[in-house]
């Protein structure tokens, strides 16, 4: 369900861009961070086979995130306003690299990159949420995208509990980062459920 929610979020994002011929309201910085997240995490495509499903999803996430960047940077460039997308990504990249160096399962390059990608994913939404706060409102379709994207990691949580008891396996890095990631959406979810799903416009209190 988490993976399908993630997949749905990307389909909704592409649908929003195509139908409105615009990337208004979408943070280029957040989208660029996702490209970095997927490239650093899915490097193991080259040596670690899990399943056709797993490989297909990895390829889709890499390809779609690069494609969204292309759409924002070239095809719909005039519709993107950098002056409201001002979050400093250096404040995310530095700490995530340090977290990756401290918390990893083996001190080697690919494992550090994997851990870095987990931490970076947890906070990659911040430029987008920062932008949303600056503008104070959003199109309904953009909020559906964010809701599906936020629900995705939250839906992993029951799976982690299941695996803790069922398979006696726990991934503390993914769990802690996943809880942080989900936590960052709580404010958004509150407004989404109380306004957008009640048929009102997404507007933040002044």
């Amino acid at each position: 369900a988490g993976d399908i929610s993630h997949l749905a979020s990307i389909v909704i994002l592409l649908h929003k861009i195509y139908t409105s011929h615009s990337c208004r309201g979408i943070s280029f910085k957040t989208q660029a961070l996702y490209v970095l997240v997927f490239l650093t995490r899915y490097l193991d495509l080259f040596w670690h086979w899990v399943s056709l499903y797993n490989t297909a999803m990895k390829v889709f996430f890499i390809a779609s995130s690069v494609y969204v960047l292309y759409l924002m940077k070239y095809k719909y460039r005039p519709t993107h306003d950098p002056s409201i997308d001002t979050f400093k990504v250096e404040y995310l990249l530095g700490p995530c690299l340090i977290l990756g160096l401290i918390f990893n399962y083996e001190f080697k390059f690919t494992e550090i990159l994997w851990s870095f990608s987990i931490w970076l994913e947890a906070v990659a939404i911040l430029p987008q949420l920062f932008m949303l706060q600056r503008t104070g409102e959003a199109e309904a379709i953009t909020t559906h995208y964010l809701a599906a994207l936020g629900a995705y990691r939250a839906l992993y949580i029951p799976n982690w509990i299941w695996r803790y008891f069922g398979d006696n396996v726990v991934d503390p890095i993914a769990v802690v980062a996943g809880l942080v990631q989900t936590g960052l959406y709580l404010d958004f979810f509150y407004v989404y459920f109380t306004k957008v799903l009640q048929g009102q416009k997404f507007e933040l209190p002044a």
């Binding site: 193991d44 899990v50 695996r163 993914a174």
Partner: peptide
């Protein structure tokens, strides 16, 4: 419980 990275997840 074994602490390990769940590399079969996305």
């Amino acid at each position: 419980n074994e602490h390990t990275s769940t590399k079969d997840e996305l």
